[in-house]
């Protein structure tokens, strides 16, 4: 589809908006519908759209497979790390209250970090799966 001008132009306009919406869903999840799972999927949809229009090789230059593997692990590590941090700071595992001076602030920080971890892992894993399937057709 690399020669289709309309698709290229439209997707170039859409991709930044999709990424913007994913970030909104990620960080506004405390207040409205959404959260890490949805944001990760929407973010990966942006890259998948890019892959469909510009091809797998171009997409792998934007998102190297190795970076995706690191990101996938990083998200889980971030989530687990928040739990370990709360243990070290004297609370139960994943009890965010001890993260900051007040309970509300601690919970806010903990939920934000944990949702970020979820988002990063979901984003990376969705792309890993998509690239694995799409890569088989290339050869």
């Amino acid at each position: 589809m690399t020669h289709n001008l309309v698709l290229r132009v439209v997707s170039k306009t859409l991709i930044p908006l999709i990424i913007m919406f994913a970030l909104y869903v990620q960080f506004h999840g405390d207040f409205g519908p959404g959260g890490g799972f949805q944001a990760g999927v929407i973010m990966s949809a942006a890259i998948i759209l890019y892959t469909l229009v510009f091809g797998l090789d171009a997409a792998e230059r934007v998102m190297p497979p190795m970076a995706l593997r690191i990101l996938a692990s990083l998200g889980v590590l971030l989530y687990g790390g928040v739990g370990v941090a709360t243990l070290v700071m004297g609370g139960n595992y994943l009890n965010y209250t001890v993260l900051a001076s007040t309970q509300i602030a601690g919970q806010h920080l903990g939920i934000l970090l944990v949702e970020l971890g979820v988002g990063i892992t979901v984003f990376a894993v969705m792309l890993i799966i998509f690239f694995a399937f799409a890569g088989r057709g290339r050869r």
């Binding site: 999840g29 405390d30 207040f31 409205g32 519908p33 959260g35 509300i104 919970q107 806010h108 903990g110 939920i111 944990v114 949702e115």
Partner: peptide, 12 residues
């Protein structure tokens, strides 16, 4: 938790 979205509070 101070989080208005109850789903997020329960989930996270």
């Amino acid at each position: 938790t101070g989080v208005p979205n109850m789903v997020t509070a329960v989930l996270a």
